[in-house]
């Protein structure tokens, strides 16, 4: 069995590690990490020894397939890169775990609430939404829409272009929408929640000290108030008109926009159910953006206030 270049390096690395473990003072902490790496390398050595060093372009094609077929053998080409990737990532994780300790604070104490109390970082986008929406909306309705919306993607996107390859040109709108939802809304709100929110969920720049006595004047008013509506019933009617108006006009505008851009024929092919679902989800996503702008720029609290439920 010929020894491949990779096996050679694997051997050198492991011998080096064994020497560190045995002879370097304190090197014993590396016994277990070393074991992990040896197991990975061992698996690799079993799975893909003597694999040719090739890149996909020069890999020998499968002999028994016809012309125009670009297939290559999974072993060794794919197996080899999977194992190398796994070894590399495991190494990174091991080094990271040796250098950085997982946090452990004081014992749990249900009577002492820390300020701020933050959810795990991957939910901080939703916690940030609590600034703009009531909990039932930010914490329950919006996440459900996100999950349902994600699942709906393959059924509402009927563009045949870019099935299995990068196609930015012919999928501009789809990619921009995904970018808005995923990168702008989800990721940047997580960054804000993690780094820029301090005590009282107030905004602190990284160079500012967290002052837990900071009080921000609550000057938020509801939208109907700005428009001079003062009674409860008036507020309900006003809000209903604004919210329903937003969805109705938004849907009509989207309909006309799509017909203008893609033509009536496309709309027929796309069909009403797809269009309604898409516009409903899209308008909900945009409502998040609009509400954020209204709050930050105009101190608007609720758009629609009723005795039972507020938007």
């Amino acid at each position: 069995m010929a020894m491949s270049r990779e096996m050679f390096w694997a051997l050198i690395t492991s011998v080096g590690l064994v020497v560190t473990v045995l002879f370097v003072p304190g090197g014993r902490v590396l016994v277990l990490p070393e074991l992990f790496i040896l197991v990975m390398i061992g698996l690799y050595a079993l799975a893909a020894p003597g694999a040719e060093i090739t890149d996909p372009d020069s890999a020998r094609p499968v002999v028994d397939t016809g012309p125009g077929d670009d297939k290559v053998h999974t072993w060794p080409h794919l197996v080899r890169s999977e194992f190398l990737c796994a070894i590399f990532i495991t190494l990174l994780l091991i080094v990271w775990s040796l250098l950085v300790d997982a946090p452990l604070e004081d014992p749990a104490n249900p009577t002492r609430t820390p300020n701020p109390s933050k959810a795990p970082w991957y939910f901080l986008g939703l916690q940030e939404m609590l600034v703009f929406f009531d909990p039932w909306h930010a914490g329950v309705v919006l996440p459900s829409f996100i999950v349902v919306g994600l699942m709906a993607i393959p059924y509402i996107d009927i563009n045949p272009a870019g099935n299995g390859y990068y196609a930015f040109e012919s999928r501009k709108i789809e990619i921009l929408t995904f970018f808005l939802g995923f990168h702008i809304l989800w990721i940047s709100l997580i960054i804000i929640g993690t780094f820029l929110r301090g005590p009282g969920w107030n905004w602190f720049w990284p160079w500012e000290v967290w002052d837990s006595h900071k009080v921000e004047a609550l000057t938020n008013v509801n939208l109907h108030y700005k428009f001079g509506v003062r009674t409860e019933t008036g507020a309900m009617i006003f809000g209903a008109i604004v919210v329903l108006g937003y969805f109705v006009l938004g849907t009509i505008a989207m309909y006309m926009g799509i017909v203008k851009m893609k033509g009536q024929e496309f709309m027929q092919r796309w069909g009403m159910p797809r269009f309604i679902l898409t516009s409903f989800l899209f308008l909900n996503m945009m409502s998040v953006v609009i509400k954020m702008v209204m709050r930050h720029a105009g101190n608007i609290m609720y758009v629609w206030q009723t005795p039972w439920i507020n938007f």
Partner: peptide
Amino acid sequence: DQLSIWAVTVGSNMARATP
């Protein structure tokens, strides 16, 4: 610890607001 119960409390408080 403090980190874990309060993060989970905040995260789960959404549930009590379910319509």
